[in-house]
């Protein structure tokens, strides 16, 4: 059987600086395509309802919950996942230094919010930082560790290239 079908479409996504093709249904979530088709499992399905933030990725510089984005909506946008940070973001080192995780399941999502905040608003004050980080939930830590990690990064200058 060989058939052109309206059920599925071929899309090209710009993920971590690479153009990747995927065959998707219009209703497929970006989160599922990242995980199941590209093997980028850093983004986690904690609720698939936009409540927990563990699937957060960065789209055009801003943190976005990938369970609330259709894969087809992501065409033409720049997507960065935790794998794309490749250990080079100061936020990653700060999370290690300040023990900002325990089980690690929410960590990718928090890292993407923190990385975006550092890139977009490196002069953010405590209130603004809280505003940004409230989008995500961590069940293990006391949040104090995540706060300290983020604060330590905000004190540094962003090296935007």
């Amino acid at each position: 059987m060989f058939e052109f079908t309206a059920d599925k479409c071929l899309i090209e996504l710009d993920v971590n600086g690479e153009n990747k093709n995927a065959i998707v249904r219009p209703s497929d979530l970006l989160l599922d395509v990242l995980r199941n088709q590209f093997g980028l499992t850093g983004a986690k399905p904690g609720c698939k309802n936009g409540d927990c933030g563990s699937c957060t990725i960065i789209m055009d510089g801003w943190p976005v919950k990938s369970c609330l984005v259709l894969a087809v909506e992501a065409v033409g946008h720049t997507i960065l996942t935790v794998e794309g940070l490749a250990g080079t973001s100061p936020v990653q080192k700060a999370f290690v230094d300040y023990h900002a995780f325990q089980c690690g399941y929410c960590t990718s999502g928090f890292l993407m919010v923190c990385h975006s905040l550092w890139m977009m608003k490196s002069d953010a004050d405590e209130e603004e930082m809280e505003d940004w980080l409230q989008s995500n939930i961590c069940r293990c830590t006391s949040y104090k560790e995540i706060r300290k990690a983020m604060e330590s990064v905000l004190l540094q200058n962003p090296q935007k290239s």
């Binding site: 499992t41 983004a43 399905p45 794998e83 990653q92 999370f95 290690v96 230094d97 023990h99 399941y105």
Partner: peptide, 21 residues
């Protein structure tokens, strides 16, 4: 001391049950 799995957990390398196909 840092957790032994620290860098896996901040790079997406840490694999959980549903991360394998």
């Amino acid at each position: 001391v840092q957790r032994k799995e620290s860098w896996d957990k901040v790079t997406g390398n840490a694999k959980y049950c549903d991360d394998f196909s």
